[in-house]
């Protein structure tokens, strides 16, 4: 299957900004952040249609999100994922001595994840953060 190299940008989108205020467990918030805006040529190249799922992998991690058409103009080779739990899974914690981790301009690999599901908040937390045993307080 075809993989392509892209630059990942994350940021605020108006819908993410609006929906986060409604509650982070809501379906609408999930839809607004567990997604990836991608250029029309790029999505063709990995053999997907908008609305199908894509796997984003970086040296920090990997996550599956749903593709969407860019809401604002997006060049080839750049993908945009709104701030949230999903993009956090592929962001790096190196701060180059600044305290600021790398959220923008991360080099990533994209591949089709047509057959995989986008994990919900619960599932993603369980997968990424399940505690073997709760630490005794």
């Amino acid at each position: 299957m075809k993989k392509i190299q892209v630059t990942l940008l994350s940021g605020r989108s108006l819908s993410q900004g609006r929906e986060k205020e409604q509650g982070k467990l809501s379906e609408s918030y999930f839809k607004s952040v567990a997604c990836c805006e991608i250029n029309g040529e790029d999505i063709k190249e990995i053999g997907l249609d908008y609305g199908e799922n894509v796997r984003i992998s970086t040296k920090y991690g990997t996550v599956v999100v749903k593709t969407t058409a860019p809401k604002q103009t997006l060049e080839r080779g750049i993908i945009f994922v709104p701030y949230g739990l999903w993009v956090a899974q592929v962001s790096g914690s190196e701060t180059d001595g600044t305290g600021m981790p790398s959220y923008k301009g991360i080099s990533s690999t994209l591949e089709s994840a047509k057959k995989e599901k986008v994990l919900t908040v619960d599932q993603l937390i369980k997968k990424s953060f399940s505690r073997k045993k709760s630490k005794k307080l």
Partner: peptide, 14 residues
């Protein structure tokens, strides 16, 4: 947990 990179968030949950 939603906003920190995975590795940092992971330590928070441990």
């Amino acid at each position: 947990i939603s906003n920190f990179p995975y590795q940092a968030a992971k330590h928070l949950t441990s």
